[in-house]
Design a protein around this nucleic acid. Structure first.
Lengths: 252, 252
DNA sequence: CGGGTGTTTGACTTCAGTCAAGTTGTGTGG
DNA sequence: CCACACAACTTGACTGAAGTCAAACACCCG
């Protein structure tokens, strides 16, 4: 039931003709349909477009693409990155299932960042103009959509805090604690998880170099804060890690 | 016509009982009513609450306050700041006339930052629950509101870029270029303006120290990029300053 | 099994921070 | 209007956290 639609071939992006359904999606308590009753959820389902598979490394959209759809992540992980005028890339976020991609494009109808799948992933395509019509007569959906946009603003403000006045150690601890709580919210173990991004990507996101990330991992390992094996992370002492993230524990 | 309402005394915040009017406000082409026809603008006007004067240094709202209103700046300048767990303050933005304050509070109904007036200022109070009803049947307003939220997301992403991988020189040049373009959009001179914030506040925003800002100002002065007199800035060579901001000019 | 990418570790460098002293500006009360 | 006090800013000397460069090592995949 999966085929490449010849009219819309994007490398690594295939289109699943099975319609997505919010009601049966495990993410519906975190995603756009949160709090909707069955009738409203049905209406939302009807406007949601194709389900797309995005292969690891493939772009879902790129800076400068015209904006048509928001994307809800069903499965997998993405990174979003900006490029400065001198061509340097900055990762602005890592997104996981239940999160929405593309909200920064609403302002100008052009995407301001590129979204790349960190592993084979699946998204629901949400045509924005149709969504907007629906928002007009579904106050619950409108409210939740605003919450999601606002949440994105809040998230970015906390990254500004992190980049603006935290030390490397604190940044990295905060990063791990943040991932942990997001996995927990999705029903996964908060203490053991797989990093979906490379050391280089973590460093880029945190405003640090790959070497610094590597050294920090080694230090946290030595301090018995973490067990690390490649991209597998186990938090051995979450309270202390949180204290390091909060800046109340120096961690020599 | 200006009096302190005894029921709502906030230090430095007085309430002007004259109703605000979007139609006569010089900011209506940048602010929420952008693009509305006369009839719709009238409807928006009717839901807009009091006009408030906020004295220099006074808080419009604080972290943790319950969210009731968005605020549109009619006049003056604000800063918004976050506080990290260890009590360090991070300025997340400087806002000027025509910009909206409080959008980060929608997600949890609590303000996530504190807004402080940098000079005597005036804002329009926009009760959010009333606004939301209006958004339901004014698609043009809905669209523009989404654009403004999205713009805030984009703005923050570009600050992340700045904090994440620009050098001090580049950060500061980018900051000045950004201010310049915002003054230009408001019909003021893009090349001569008054800084409304202290060196310390600039440093905090840019993730640098007050000493670094001072040294950068001196260097830009010596390089004939700026004329500086206290908080008065004159850009002597905007193209070169833009080149420094873009990272294409090193500026020894 | 070999090649390439991704990661770790060490030695050295540098940019921006810290500390300290001095200067200029501002606002208040005599 | 001046004098004083305090805040804001500037400048210099020194320090240190994180970056750069380089080499070695580990893991993955054909």
């Amino acid at each position: 039931m999966i085929r490449e639609l010849p009219s819309l071939v994007i490398p690594g992006v295939t289109i699943d003709v099975l319609k997505a359904s919010c009601a049966t999606c495990s993410m519906h308590q975190l995603c756009l349909p949160m709090g909707l009753d069955d009738k409203d959820m049905e209406r939302l389902d009807q406007i949601i477009g194709r389900r797309r598979k995005v292969a690891r490394g493939a772009n879902l959209f790129r800076i400068g693409d015209t904006f048509q759809n928001l994307y809800a992540i069903r499965l997998g992980h993405f990174k979003t990155c900006q490029v400065s005028q001198d061509g340097v890339e900055q990762i602005t976020g890592f997104q996981m299932a239940g999160e929405l991609l593309g909200m920064d494009a609403i302002s100008t109808d052009l995407h301001h960042c590129t979204a790349v799948a960190l592993e084979d992933s699946e998204v629901c395509e949400i045509p924005f103009s149709t969504l907007q019509q629906l928002l007009g007569d579904m106050p619950t959906l409108l409210r939740h959509f605003h919450r999601m946009m606002s949440q994105e603003i809040t998230r970015e403000q906390s990254v500004m805090l992190l980049l603006g006045n935290m030390q490397a150690t604190q940044r990295f601890a905060a990063f791990l604690v943040n991932l942990s709580s997001r996995y927990e919210a999705r029903g996964y173990s908060p203490n053991t998880f797989q990093l979906r991004m490379s050391r280089e990507e973590i460093g880029n996101y945190l405003g640090l170099t790959i070497e610094s990330i590597s050294r920090l991992l080694s230090r946290f390992k030595k301090e018995a804060l973490l067990r690390v094996s490649n991209r597998e992370i186990e938090m051995l002492d979450p309270p202390r890690l949180k204290a390091v993230a909060a800046g109340s524990q120096t961690c020599n």
